[in-house]
């Protein structure tokens, strides 16, 4: 277990380093940043001063080293547009992203668990089939299109839900559902299989033999035992939502980190783009690490496969 843990953590650090390197290489490819910072009539001397100030006169490996060190301590420099530290921009937008991810997670559990339980109990029934269709569609539907169609139906045609922006609870419904759609399907399947496994166990048979009411058997003995892995898993999914927020935030004009990245791409504010991508990637990789570790804890077979 310990060696798996260490190996997996090491791999996460490596992955992060790869992301940082990709971002570094890309920014160097995209041309000399001083032309973005200075206006057209800057003199030769201005350019030299800025080059030295930014450390661009140093050899590339040294620049890379400095860059990695800065990123490691959370120093992303200043925004080209606002001239404010990039970290300030990130902190402004992070709460909205977290809020959306949190509600999306909650919603997917709310949809996935009851549906999954019902599918397991009435296996092969109408709802089980419907749940299957729901899941298959989830794989094939472009998220951004789903979001737009939800806006069209609930926002424009019915006019019952706001089409975008951040506000009260109502503003959260559509983006959270869009972001959580795929996960609800995953949780549904997870609940279904966990529940099927539990229902086939001896203690459920015994509970039934004892003459307990079927509802008591299902809810008290069944669901409680099936739910643990599902819920733990769902909580960790939350972190991964943060990684996929770019699309949903764009569709719903949600002022989060993902949208900040896209806005900054339009304004060519590369320091903000870099920092946003790095922060989201870090969250995403950490989330993955947690889920993997949790899985290996719950399912010892994974440990053996990996070692």
């Amino acid at each position: 277990m310990a060696s798996y843990l260490v190996g997996r953590a090491f791999q996460t650090v490596l992955s992060m380093l790869v992301v940082v390197s990709i971002v570094f290489v890309l920014t160097r490819l995209s041309g000399n940043p001083i032309y973005l910072l200075l206006d057209v009539n800057a003199t030769q001397r201005d350019q030299e001063i800025l080059t030295r100030h930014l450390g661009l006169d140093k050899p590339l490996p040294v620049q890379y080293g400095i860059y990695v060190m800065n990123v490691a301590v959370g120093d992303f420099g200043n925004s080209i547009i606002s001239r404010r530290p990039v970290t300030e921009h990130i902190w402004e937008r992070l709460p909205a992203t977290v809020e959306l991810g949190f509600v999306a997670m909650f919603l997917s559990v709310l949809i996935g668990v009851p549906l999954g339980m019902y599918s397991a109990v009435r296996r092969g029934g109408v709802l089980d089939t419907a749940a299957r269709v729901f899941a298959v569609l989830g794989q094939s539907m472009p998220t951004f299109w789903l979001g737009l169609m939800l806006i069209l139906f609930f926002g424009v045609v019915l006019g019952v839900l706001p089409a975008g922006g951040r506000g009260g609870l109502l503003h959260l419904v559509l983006p959270a559902f869009t972001l959580g759609y795929f996960t609800s399907a995953a949780i549904l399947r997870l609940t279904r299989s966990a529940m099927l496994e539990v229902l086939g166990s001896d203690y459920i048979k015994f509970a039934r033999l004892k003459g307990l009411h079927e509802q008591v058997v299902l809810w008290k003995h069944g669901l409680r035992n099936a739910l643990l892995p599902v819920v733990t898993f769902a909580v960790l999914l939350f972190v991964q939502f943060l990684g996929g927020a770019v699309v949903t935030e764009t569709v719903f004009a949600w002022p989060g980190l993902g949208r900040l990245i896209l806005e900054s791409i339009t304004t060519r504010d590369y320091p903000v783009v870099q920092a946003g991508v790095l922060v989201l990637s870090a969250l995403y990789l950490t989330g993955n690490l947690c889920v993997d570790l949790l899985y290996s804890y719950l399912n010892p077979r994974i440990r053996h496969v990996s070692s």
Partner: peptide, 23 residues
Amino acid sequence: MRLTDIGLSLPTILIAVVMVAVS
């Protein structure tokens, strides 16, 4: 395989967005 694992673990959309945007 280490390389492959890293490749599989990257946040696809984010990397794609930043790569295409910059280039």
